[in-house]
């Protein structure tokens, strides 16, 4: 089932994926999001993926696991991935699990897009 909570925009070789659901807790929602995000890796060779989490206020450890799986898939095809717009209240979740050590986090997605534009793959 395609996720109804994901907006995709692709331009200049950069793919922006914005999750539009505030509570990313239900397994069907998380699985649908993960499937759709994984498809982007297949569709765009050497993807520059920017994941916008500005609308997300609640998430589960399962979603963090899916994020790690996505990061591994992106790096496996020599792509790159960053996360933008994580609310300050949620940032400790990524720090405790040390995802912030391997995935780039930026205050907003636009910053990552500009960075990726300046440094194309």
């Amino acid at each position: 089932m395609p996720s109804e909570h994901l907006i995709i925009q692709a331009y200049d070789g950069i793919v922006l994926a914005k999750i539009t659901k505030e509570r990313v807790l239900e397994a069907p929602v998380i699985n649908a999001l993960a499937e759709d995000l994984a498809k982007l890796v297949d569709r765009y060779p050497k993807i520059s993926l920017v994941l916008d989490l500005a609308d997300v206020g609640y998430l589960s450890s399962s979603f963090i696991g899916k994020l790690m799986a996505l990061f591994k898939a992106v790096t496996a095809v020599k792509g790159r991935m960053a996360v933008g717009g994580v609310r300050p209240s949620l940032m400790p979740l990524f720090q405790v699990t040390r995802l912030d050590k391997i995935i780039t986090f930026a205050p907003d997605a636009e910053q990552v897009i500009q960075l990726y534009k300046r440094k194309p793959l």
Partner: peptide, 12 residues
């Protein structure tokens, strides 16, 4: 453990 796709819940 960093790259595992599970096992973070109890730590959180």
């Amino acid at each position: 453990s960093l790259f595992l796709e599970h096992g973070r819940g109890i730590r959180l």
